[in-house]
Structure formats: structure tokens, C-alpha cells
Design a protein around this nucleic acid. Structure first.
Lengths: 242, 242
DNA sequence: TAGTGGTCTAGACCACGGG
DNA sequence: CCGTGGTCTAGACCACTAT
């Protein structure tokens, strides 16, 4: 049995999706919905809030609530940790730490990370192996002041991405995805040809404005892709999600 | 002035981020928070719901609410329409329709789209120009039964992606991002070299289980990247969002 | 000024699930 | 059983904004 606010949510969603209520058109005011559904105004409000979260409705004081105008063509992509993604897809996954050095941030990297020169870091290089073949080369910087435990961690059993998540919650992440040609060193490690198209992901992760880690992951183009399905997230569960 | 539920939200969020409340540990029960903040239980509940949406808290009947365990390393990436993205970044944007044919779906494409062979489609090829240089080659299929207006549309002023959004709301999208080497035809159109690393995005969009459009966009690797910042979305607006 | 959403209250009953 | 969250009510006052 669906709750009242879920019913209201679904009804309005259905009308919008069916085109019955066109973008920009007005939705009945809350008081009318209160009467129509025989519920309190707060229950109506909860349903409308969920529709706002989903980007289907906008609410304006004095003028009422409206079907949202068509969204810009933005959608959303999950980017998962390699080992988790591999596991979910039913592939074997291993990793090998190639480099592990405690250093101080030099001028170039400091600029890249927007962190002070001289800050203590752990620099890692790690090769990910999926189904027996190199699948990703990971170059990572971990800020040691925020993650002091990394100083002693050898990442023998758990890859750095996974380990970090158990240590430090993040509040913000920035991703950049590019296509690059493999240079000689990368090609050798990934067992591919120099010049091969590679998918290159850079991720910087913050906690409250402080950088936790900066990582660049390079995948051979013929062995990796990002894939993701997206449906706008509802505040509360909708019929289709159950 | 922050509302009460925003205050509660921020306070709890801060304690979790500071590590004061560790993952898995119990959060005060709602009644205690009611007393602590001198507000009604519903206000507390609203704050906790927002924390659940943000993935920082889990609530269980009988046992209480807890700090969520660390998330898997998934994060989220906005993928915008090229013209919109270019505008936002302050670049000029133009497009040129190279191909525009009404066809019926052949076996290969039908399998790709999981749509029936013979369905009527509009096949487009469109070159996007940003700051005077080719920036993307778009190959698109539009299902004409769902978007009949496309039959007459010439896409002279508005690129297909933007036009489609004004015609058809979507309920689900799937993305695949790969790195590929430019073949000769693509390289010529994008004014780059054959073999150049290119970023390749495939997007299929549905409305209630029916395909609306399928599009493959190829960007030269040296002229394009996806970039996105992410913070988990809150159910209700938080102080930082205003 | 008046219409509308934004927030809040002080209760209530129900649903779930551990003991 | 009974503690806890899930949902709901019937109001209330305030904030914003179009007119």
C-alpha cells in the first residue's frame, strides 16, 4: 500500500510524463490537492518537494507550482572504484603497487592540487589487473596530514581507492575524463601500443575544502569504458523503484 | 537565518564529517533530538530524511538511526548538451547538419537499440563547431513514432539534442564513454589525424521504456573533456546551496 | 495587499523488528 | 511486548512576490 504522498507523487509524475501537463503549465495549488486527496497540506507538500528534487516541478511563492521546463541535457554517471566495478561485473581483480614514496609536494603538483608546496604526501603508482590483463594504471597522491594512517599502510590486500574510503569520508569530488594517447611508459605497463587511445580519469577528492587525494587513472581504450544508467533520483521511493 | 531542520542537518553532518560520530555508530533517537533542539519530531524527521538522501545516515525502526557505513567509490558526473556546455563556458557554438535521412531500422541498429527492425527513424549526422574548430561529430537516430515532429524539423537553428529536450521528456538514459582512435572519415571531419585518441560518448534515452533517441558523439581528445563536480544531493535545500 | 509556498507544532496511530 | 521510525493531521504564522 502506497502512502498518500507517494500516491500524489506518482499521479503528478504520470501526468507530466504523459504530456497531459505540459512544461511550464501550472500544477493545482496545494490547497486544491489537499481537497482532491483529502489529506493535509503537509502531505501534499512532501510529494511536491520530492518532485522538485526530481527536477520535474518548480514551486514559486505567490504564483504556484509548475511543471519544470525541459532540463538541459545533463545526466549523471556513476564512476566506481575499479575493484568494486570489476567484482560487480563478475571479473577477477588484482593490483600491484609499483611505487610507494613519502614526499613533499613540489611546485607543479602543488598548483595542480591547490595545496601548499611542501605538504607531506604519499605518492603511489598502482597497476590494476582484471581477468589477467592490465586494465588501469593509477597514479595517486594522498595528503598525509588528513590521512596519517596512510603513512604505514602497504595496500597489500586492498587497493588504495577502497582503503581510503574506509578511512576518510569525502564531501566533494571533481572528475575529469579525457582521451589521451599512451606514452611509452604507460603503454609498456598496460601492455599495449604506444599511441593507443586511452581513457584518462582524474579525480580529486575533498573533505571540507581540504584535499584528501588526487588520482589519475589511465585505462587502455580497448579494455575499458564507463557505463551508467540514470534516472533522476527521487526523494522518496516511487512506484517503479519497489 | 537557517531553518531548524537545516540547523539539525548541518550539526549532524558536521559531527559525522569531523569523525566525532564514527560510521556505524548510533545517532541520538528522534525524541532526544526533539528535546535537544526544542522542536517537534517532524522537524527532526525532516533533517534525518535529508541526511538519508545524502547517504550519510541510515534509519532503522526499533534500533534507531546510524551513521552510514562508507560508500562504495561511486560518484557522479554531469554530462551536458554540447551547445549548453559551450555557452556556459563562454565559447561560441555552431553546428552543421551533414546528413538527414528518414529510414527504417536495419537489423544491426535494431539490435543495438533493442527496437524492432523496420521502425521508422530519422538518421542524423551533425558536426559541432566550438570557437571555430570542429569539436564533436554526432551520429544520431531518432525514433519517429515517439517524436513525429522530427519528420519535418531541419535543426537549422537548434542542435538536435536541445531540440529533442523541448519535445520529449526522458525518464531514463544510459551512457557509455570510451576512448577510441579516429578512423579516416572521422578524422577528416574533426580536422585531426587518423589514429588520434578521441572521446566517444554513446547515449540512449528512453521515455517509459521506449527509446527516444540513440546518439554517438565523438570528440577529438585534444579538444574536449568531461569535467564534473559532485556533492551528494540533499533532499531539502541546505544552507550551502543558497 | 493578497495569494501562495515554507516552515513548524503537538499531538496521533501504525509498522516494523529485536528481545 | 515495546522501542523506534513512518506517516499523517489540522491547524498556525511567516516570507516572498505579483499586482
Amino acid at each position: 500500500m502506497a502512502s498518500i504522498y507517494q500516491t500524489i507523487f506518482s499521479d503528478i509524475e504520470a501526468k507530466i510524463l504523459a504530456g497531459e501537463w505540459q512544461p511550464g503549465s501550472r500544477i493545482p495549488i496545494e490547497q486544491d490537492l489537499v481537497v482532491q486527496y483529502g489529506c493535509s497540506r503537509m502531505t501534499v507538500s512532501k510529494a511536491l518537494s520530492a518532485l522538485v528534487t526530481r527536477g520535474m516541478v518548480v514551486r514559486r511563492r505567490k504564483t504556484g507550482s509548475f511543471v519544470a521546463l525541459p532540463q538541459i541535457d545533463r545526466t549523471v554517471m556513476d564512476i566506481q572504484d575499479i575493484s568494486t566495478a570489476a567484482e560487480l561485473a563478475g571479473h577477477s581483480h588484482g593490483h600491484r603497487i609499483l611505487t610507494r614514496k613519502i614526499e613533499r609536494l613540489d611546485a607543479g603538483d602543488a598548483k595542480l592540487l591547490s595545496e601548499p608546496v611542501g605538504a607531506e604526501i604519499l605518492r603511489l603508482q598502482c597497476l590494476h589487473i582484471v581477468d589477467g590483463r592490465p586494465n588501469a594504471l593509477e597514479r595517486r597522491i594522498i595528503m598525509l596530514d588528513l590521512v596519517p594512517l596512510a603513512r604505514e599502510e602497504k595496500f597489500a590486500t586492498m587497493p588504495p581507492a577502497k582503503w581510503l574510503l574506509e578511512q576518510v569520508p569525502w564531501t566533494k569530488a571533481r572528475h575529469v575524463i579525457r582521451a589521451i594517447s599512451a606514452d611509452q611508459a604507460t603503454a609498456r605497463l598496460l601492455e599495449t601500443e604506444r599511441g593507443e587511445a586511452c581513457l584518462n580519469l582524474v579525480r580529486q577528492t575533498w573533505q571540507n575544502g581540504r584535499t584528501v587525494t588526487y588520482v589519475e587513472i589511465t585505462h587502455p581504450g580497448d579494455r575499458f569504458q564507463f557505463a551508467g544508467c540514470f534516472q533522476p533520483a527521487a526523494t522518496w521511493p516511487t512506484a517503479g523503484d519497489r
